Amino acid sequence: MMMNLFSSFDPSTNFNTSINWFSSTIGLIILPPLFWLVPSRFSVIWNKITLTLHQEFKVLTNSKYQGSTLIFISLFTFILFNNFLGLFPYIFTSSSHMALTLTLALPLWLSFMIYGWTMNTMHMFTHLVPQGTPGILMPFMVLIESISNVIRPGTLAIRLSANMIAGHLLLTLLGNTSSSVPSSLISILIIVQILLLILETAVSIIQSYVFAVLTTLYSSEVN
């Protein structure tokens, strides 16, 4: 039962092939043609979303460069698209794997750390000791802040993958028990699964937004 429950997250078992990771590139085929239909509803709505994200990320980064928010908007778009793909049947959920989430989080965190400690060394040292900390507690605060800083890419990756796995596991578990449920309760089971699917849609949006916002906040600390 446990092997069947977790088999939907195995890249090599959906279609007995190892190319399921190519689901992350489906957006390159679907999304670009939609922008040629100008002014389409999709382009208008997406422009409003990106403009709102740009204004919010610009405040968080406190950067004077115009294109500083482009990487975070692209990160939000990529994660959101992969999260949505996982809600469709027979499509591999790549954002539920640490191989993808850690690949997104670790290089960004490393680049922030390298830039911060190279260009703003004293500024990075001041972040290790919060303002108003008593002198006797400073060594402990430096240790705690250093550990919390080191585990940031891991927490980003685990947060995204765990939230994606949790809802999919619940949907899979309910779907596997449908054969043993009395026919009088099938309608209730279907309603519950629809509600869970709506919840998973909201989680897909929220988690991609949280990942992008936390990455933006981490970048603002090195300036």
Score class of each variant (00 low, 15 high):
residue 197 L to I: 06
residue 8 S to G: 11
residue 205 I to T: 07
residue 201 T to N: 06
residue 144 I to C: 13
residue 52 T to W: 12
residue 84 F to N: 02
residue 156 L to I: 04
residue 91 I to W: 03
residue 203 V to K: 00
residue 126 T to A: 13
residue 31 L to F: 09
residue 173 L to T: 07
residue 141 M to G: 07
residue 175 G to W: 12
residue 186 I to E: 10
residue 193 Q to T: 01
residue 23 S to M: 11
residue 187 S to R: 11
residue 17 T to Q: 14
residue 110 L to G: 08
residue 134 P to Y: 02
residue 163 N to I: 14
residue 57 F to V: 02
residue 67 G to P: 05
residue 33 P to Q: 00
residue 56 E to N: 13
residue 199 L to M: 14
residue 4 N to V: 08
residue 71 I to H: 15
residue 204 S to R: 03
residue 75 L to C: 01
residue 124 M to Q: 02
residue 70 L to Y: 07
residue 147 I to C: 04
residue 72 F to V: 05
residue 98 M to N: 12
residue 30 I to K: 06
residue 77 T to L: 11
residue 189 L to K: 04
residue 32 P to L: 00
residue 195 L to S: 05
residue 120 N to M: 09
residue 2 M to K: 12
residue 205 I to P: 02
residue 80 L to W: 00
residue 22 F to I: 14
residue 95 S to N: 08
residue 5 L to Q: 05
residue 45 I to V: 09
residue 3 M to S: 13
residue 5 L to D: 09
residue 164 M to P: 08
residue 212 A to H: 01
residue 219 S to K: 07
residue 154 G to R: 04
residue 16 N to L: 08
residue 159 R to Q: 12
residue 142 V to N: 03
residue 44 V to M: 08
residue 183 S to Y: 09
residue 40 S to T: 04
residue 220 S to F: 08
residue 118 T to F: 14
residue 189 L to F: 01
residue 14 N to W: 06
residue 147 I to K: 04
residue 149 N to G: 04
residue 141 M to H: 10
residue 169 L to Q: 02
residue 17 T to K: 07
residue 38 V to F: 08
residue 132 G to K: 05
residue 185 L to Q: 10
residue 190 I to H: 06
residue 60 L to F: 07
residue 24 S to L: 09
residue 35 F to M: 07
residue 52 T to V: 13
residue 193 Q to A: 09
residue 23 S to P: 07
residue 149 N to P: 04
residue 218 Y to N: 07
residue 7 S to G: 00
residue 192 V to G: 00
residue 51 L to K: 13
residue 160 L to N: 03
residue 82 N to D: 10
residue 106 L to P: 04
residue 46 W to C: 07
residue 161 S to A: 10
residue 169 L to P: 06
residue 27 G to I: 03
residue 123 H to R: 05
residue 46 W to V: 07
residue 113 M to D: 11
residue 26 I to H: 12
residue 142 V to D: 01
residue 122 M to I: 15
residue 135 G to C: 02
residue 9 F to E: 01
residue 61 T to E: 10
residue 116 G to K: 04
residue 179 S to W: 12
residue 189 L to Y: 08
residue 146 S to A: 15
residue 190 I to C: 03
residue 213 V to L: 11
residue 75 L to I: 05
residue 41 R to L: 14
residue 141 M to P: 02
residue 109 W to A: 01
residue 6 F to Q: 01
residue 217 L to P: 11
residue 159 R to D: 09
residue 83 N to M: 04
residue 141 M to E: 08
residue 54 H to W: 05
residue 179 S to K: 14
residue 113 M to C: 13
residue 168 H to T: 11
residue 128 L to R: 06
residue 144 I to Y: 09
residue 50 T to P: 02
residue 163 N to A: 11
residue 213 V to Q: 03
residue 18 S to R: 13
residue 6 F to N: 00
residue 57 F to R: 01
residue 139 P to W: 00
residue 216 T to Y: 00
residue 193 Q to L: 05
residue 145 E to W: 07
residue 91 I to R: 01
residue 64 K to P: 14
residue 125 F to W: 15
residue 153 P to N: 04
residue 218 Y to M: 15
residue 196 L to G: 02
residue 102 L to D: 12
residue 138 M to F: 05
residue 50 T to R: 08
residue 153 P to L: 02
residue 184 S to N: 09
residue 9 F to C: 04
residue 118 T to K: 11
residue 131 Q to N: 14
residue 189 L to M: 06
residue 62 N to A: 13
residue 26 I to P: 03
residue 171 L to E: 10
residue 36 W to S: 09
residue 85 L to N: 07
residue 16 N to C: 12
residue 137 L to G: 09
residue 206 I to F: 13
